[in-house]
């Protein structure tokens, strides 16, 4: 049957984090922060490459980040970086079968062992670390 009739959820379904618990939120954040970091990396290379045009060009570029908007952006980058790294380590270990629970006799109400408190705790810790790092980063950036 044509894929048009397949009732696939598509990108909107894939990127909807509201329905399947905190694990799906973490999946969504990992994608979003991964893409955000990629965008930042490209921008960062563009920014720092102005050094080849001499000190004046470099200083002019730096002025762009010395604005409130620039500070907010950098604070976001700090948060994205911390969450992506911390949650990324959880995901990499999970992908290898570490911390995903042990198979056993399923019993009503059939709670999945892979969606265990350790996984959820690691997700919340990743979010908390990102929030703390953002607060510290913002205090330094906006501090002076």
């Amino acid at each position: 049957m044509a894929e048009r009739l397949s009732n696939r959820e598509g990108i909107r379904g894939m990127a909807n984090p509201t329905r399947y618990g905190i694990e799906r939120v973490a999946y969504w954040l990992q994608r979003l922060t991964g893409l955000g970091l990629l965008a930042y990396l490209i921008g960062h290379i563009y920014e720092t490459s102005t050094i080849v045009n001499g000190k004046i060009a470099w200083d002019k570029m730096l002025e762009l980040t010395q604005t409130p908007q620039g500070h907010i952006l950098l604070t976001l980058v700090i948060g994205m970086c911390v969450f992506h790294t911390a949650n990324g380590i959880r995901v990499m270990l999970g992908h290898g079968g570490i911390g995903v629970g042990k198979p056993g006799q399923p019993e009503y109400p059939y709670k999945a062992a892979s969606l265990n408190y350790k996984q959820r705790l690691c997700i919340w810790v990743s979010i908390a670390l990102a929030a703390l790092a953002m607060m510290y980063g913002a205090s330094v950036l906006f501090g002076d």
């Binding site: 329905r19 618990g21 799906r24 973490a26 999946y27 992908h95 629970g101 399923p106 892979s114 969606l115």
Partner: peptide, 21 residues
């Protein structure tokens, strides 16, 4: 990507996300 949604909805406790990892 270990989003776990499969295991969230499985009615039989199969936990496909665990099996895949």
């Amino acid at each position: 990507h270990f989003a776990g949604s499969c295991s969230q909805v499985c009615p039989k406790g199969v936990d496909p996300a665990m099996a895949i990892q």
